[in-house]
Computed example of a mutant assay.
Amino acid sequence: VATYNKYFGQRVHDGFTDKFEFKYTGLQNCSIVIRNVIEQDEGCYRCLFNTYPEGAFTGRTCLQVYELHEPVVDVRESNSTEEKVVSCSATGRPAPTVTLSVSQQDLNFSQYNTVSVSNTNATFTVTTTAVLSGSRKHSTQVGCAARVLSAPQREVMVMISEVKQVHAGNDDNDDGKMVKEDTFFKVMIYIMVCHYSVILVHV
C-alpha cells in the first residue's frame, strides 16, 4: 500500500494514492489514514519495519467496517383505544440491535417481536414491533435506538398525541331520535300499504 524510507521519504503505491495517505512517519510512530472507508477496505493490515542488522519487525492490525442507517419508526392504531402498535426498523452491518423506549412512566411495551432480514448488499434490516399499553392522558415520546456492536448508537424520537375522549352531545341524541322516528314512520307506511292492498284483494 505505502512505504517510508528515511532517505527517500514516503511513497503511496499506484492505485492507492486517492485512498491512503501518511499521517505520521517515523520508526516510533508510523501511521496511515484511509479515506472514504467502504466495505472493500475491511481486512487486516501489516506493518513491516526493515532494519539492519536486526532484520524485519512486523505488526498487524485489522479493520472492521460497521454500517448503520438511521432508524425508522412507525406508529399505528390497535384494536384497543388505549394501545398503539409501534415498529422500528434499522439497517446495518452486522445486524443491528433495535431497542424501543417510552418517556411516560405509566406506559409500557409488551408483546415484542423482532424480525431480521438479510439484504443483497450484505446488510441486515432488523424490525422490532411491540404493543404500547396504558392510559395516555398526555402526549408522550417514543424512542428507538439502533446499535451495531461497539459503534455509537443512532436514535430517533416520535411524539404520540394524547387520547381525547369525545362525549355525545344533544345533537347526537337528536339524530338518534330522528332515526328512530324515521324508522317508525316507514314502518307505519308499510303497514298501511299492506293493509290497503289486502282490502283491495277482498273487494
Rank of each mutant, 00 (worst) to 15 (best):
L107W: 01
K186W: 06
Q105M: 09
I189F: 08
V166I: 15
K137C: 03
Q105V: 12
V131K: 07
L149W: 04
Y112S: 05
G143D: 03
T183C: 07
V187Y: 09
M159Q: 12
E155T: 14
M178Q: 11
N113F: 09
Q111D: 15
G169Y: 02
F185W: 09
D172R: 10
A151W: 00
I191W: 03
T125N: 06
G176P: 01
P152A: 02
F109K: 03
V148E: 01
R154F: 05
K137E: 11
G169H: 02
F109A: 02
G169T: 10
V166T: 14
K177T: 11
L100P: 05
S161M: 09
T120Y: 09
A95Q: 07
T97P: 00
L107Y: 01
T97L: 09
Q104T: 15
I189A: 08
T129E: 08
D106N: 15
V102K: 02
G143Y: 01
S133W: 00
S103R: 06
T114K: 06
V131M: 07
S161I: 06
S118I: 12
L107T: 01
V148A: 02
V156M: 05
F184M: 10
Q111G: 13
N119A: 07
D171I: 15
P96V: 01
V179S: 06
D174Y: 09
T129K: 04
V126E: 01
S110M: 09
M188I: 15
M178A: 13
I191R: 03
S101F: 03
